[in-house]
């Protein structure tokens, strides 16, 4: 039942993206999100698409894995495409007019753009972060990138600590859930039949013991952490220090340039680009 949990799925590897400093990757992620969401003109969209393709290529993640990760989103993707296709009211004559259904040219354009944009977002962020960054690297990077916020008393260290502990306990709690399910089944609990409401109600005898035990675990963990001299983030050192080198900076600068380029490409038309190229040569 819980075997297919793909949260924070990390594929160990040694690709360029795996080796990139996770802090740099976080900054690149922000730029990437801006880039994909801002791209409006065909040229800008093509650039963002090409960049997404580049990310996928250098991540070394197998294509079948990517397809599998996008599968649960098929419904959302299809829904947005359809909504855009049918509900965009464009100028001029509709291309197709069938009773109340009217499809305009701009509708098709919007649908395709939206589809590509969402797909880019999902695939790009997964290869950039989840597939190529171990959860611990990620929490460390978040703590480090957000550390300036400590000055205005945002509990950045505590937040990162909670996140890494949450990730640490996911497999433990999944195991426990499976045990509870088996135990309740042995007491003739029925999880599979009945309508939705009935099945939701059947989850209560799973959730309550799970919560109780999670709270008990938390108490014990707190004791164990205190025993090991935990006293918050102050004065804490790290076994693993994050290092960024030349390639990380080159990567960062390149992405920044592409993002800026997308802003400009948004304003340019094809003829302007052709004219611009002609000027150069």
């Amino acid at each position: 039942m819980l075997k297919d949990v793909t949260f924070g799925q990390y594929y160990p590897g040694n690709s360029l993206l795996h080796r990139t400093d996770p802090r740099i990757k976080l900054i690149i992620l922000v730029e990437y999100l801006v880039l994909v969401l801002v791209a409006e003109s065909e040229l800008a969209a093509l650039t963002s698409l090409a960049f997404t393709g580049f990310l996928i290529a250098v991540s070394g993640v197998r294509f079948s894995v990517l397809i599998k990760s996008a599968k649960p989103l098929i419904f959302v993707l299809a829904f947005t495409a359809i909504v855009n296709l049918f509900f965009t009211v464009g100028e001029g004559e509709p291309l197709v007019s069938f009773y109340f259904i009217k499809i305009y040219q701009s509708g098709i354009r919007n649908a395709v753009m939206m589809l590509l944009r969402l797909l880019s977002l999902v695939l790009g962020t997964s290869v950039l972060i989840s597939f190529t960054t171990s959860p611990l690297e990620l929490t460390d990077a978040i703590e480090s990138v957000l550390s300036p916020l400590k000055k205005i008393k945002v509990p950045v260290h505590e937040f990162a600590m909670m996140m890494s502990i949450a990730l640490r306990f996911i497999p433990t709690l999944i195991e426990e859930t499976n045990k509870i399910i088996s135990a309740q089944k042995a007491r003739c609990a029925d999880f599979e039949s009945g309508n939705l409401l009935k099945r939701l109600k059947a989850l209560i005898p799973i959730l309550i013991p799970l919560f109780v035990s999670a709270v008990r675990r938390a108490e014990e963990l707190a004791d164990a952490m205190e025993c090991r001299c935990y006293h918050g983030g102050e004065g804490r050192t790290k076994l693993k220090v994050m290092k960024s080198d030349a390639k990380d900076y080159v990567f960062l600068v390149t992405v920044t340039l592409i993002t800026v380029a997308v802003f400009f490409l948004n304003r340019l038309t094809w003829s302007e680009v052709v004219g611009f190229c002609a000027d150069i040569f």
Binding site: L136, R168, R217, L221
Partner: peptide, 9 residues
């Protein structure tokens, strides 16, 4: 409980 005293993955 060994599970409840390990902090990191």
């Amino acid at each position: 409980n060994p599970d409840n005293q390990l902090v990191a993955s």
